[in-house]
């Protein structure tokens, strides 16, 4: 049994934070600790907050923490910002908005960089939420990077997905197109004290009206908030809790959990399989030859990839004999 996992289970922030770090860095001891933590996951309410850049997601999370804490719930946050494609570095500034909670022992905030992951999450978001869940936080909030139209991976992670918009993004809620509109459970018009909030609400309602009814029978709710003043946040928190209850009552929570587990597993499998094949290929000079052939257009990428996988299979078969 992993000692660090034991301490994390007791709620030790130093230990939990270190396990997340190992998982993020792909260190084997991270996987080892996670094995011990995984059976203890499944209790937290996972809330995803997504929306375009500048919608006020971080400030909304900050206000939500305040309300949840007043209800005596402990809260963990994973806030994601993009990695620079050039240097691999990142500036993670989401928590600036949440620093008033920095000394509250019932709050844990972790900033993560996407590290090349697409879809609005970071590479180890699933793992991080698992660790925080196992540590005993009642609510785990994931704030995605500022997303556009199709970055909806958070839906596979969260029980409750909150889509945040703001007035003035364009006359037909430009930044919230099909994908993202179809997946939200709750919709927020933040900065609702600004001009144009009524229009935004009208457009959102129209688009939600045209949405196919959810299989679990949940009617998406629409909220107007001013996160900087806390206006509307109480109702938002209540609606989040109501959504969770709805999922429990209808049995949809189990379906979500199953989908989440499968998604997590398949993602991991894909990355492990690719890593294994690439490691194998790295020992072989045919790899650089294949890349050169694709570059020279002597071979198409499909055939090259198949050939590489074929070579891998052959080597495995040989090892078995």
């Amino acid at each position: 049994m992993s000692e660090i996992a034991d301490r994390a289970l007791e709620g030790c922030q130093v230990s939990g934070a270190r396990v997340i770090r190992w998982l993020e860095d792909g260190e084997p001891r991270g996987a080892e600790a996670f094995r011990a933590l995984y059976p203890h996951t499944g209790r937290a309410h996972l809330i995803g907050i997504t929306g375009p850049p500048g919608a006020g997601k971080s400030t909304l999370v900050d206000a939500l923490i305040t309300v949840l804490r007043s209800r005596d719930l402990s809260v963990a946050v994973v806030a994601i910002d993009p990695t620079s494609p050039f240097s691999g570095g990142a500036i993670l500034g989401d928590r600036i908005r949440m620093q008033r909670h920095a000394t509250d022992p019932g709050v844990f905030i972790r900033s993560m960089a996407t590290r090349g992951q697409l879809g609005g999450l970071s590479r180890a978001t699933f793992e991080a939420t698992g660790v925080l869940d196992a540590m005993g936080y009642d609510v785990v909030i994931v704030e995605t990077v500022g997303v556009g139209q199709d970055e909806i991976e958070v839906v596979d992670l969260a029980h409750t997905t909150v889509v945040v918009s703001v007035p003035g993004l364009g006359d037909d809620v430009q930044a919230l197109k099909a994908g993202i509109l179809e997946v939200g459970d709750l919709f927020v018009i933040n900065k609702a004290d600004r001009p144009g909030a009524d229009d935004t609400e009208k457009h959102l309602l129209a688009m939600l009206h045209g949405r196919a009814p959810a299989a679990d029978g949940w009617e998406p709710t629409l909220h107007r908030t001013v996160a900087t003043s806390g206006e509307g946040i109480d109702l938002l928190a209540e609606s989040c809790a109501a959504h969770r209850s709805h999922l429990e009552e209808t049995g949809a929570l189990d379906a979500k959990a199953a989908r989440r587990a499968e998604h997590f597993f398949l993602e991991l499998l894909r990355s492990l399989a690719a890593q294994r094949i690439l490691e194998d290929a790295a020992e072989d000079e045919s790899f650089s030859y294949l890349i050169a052939s694709v570059r020279a257009r002597e071979l198409d990428p499909y055939s090259a990839a198949r050939r590489l996988v074929g070579a891998f299979e052959l080597r495995i078969a040989k090892d078995e004999n």
Partner: peptide, 11 residues
């Protein structure tokens, strides 16, 4: 960041 580090700025 440009040197490849992840920088958390807390304000």
């Amino acid at each position: 960041r440009d040197a490849g580090m992840e920088v958390i700025y807390s304000g």
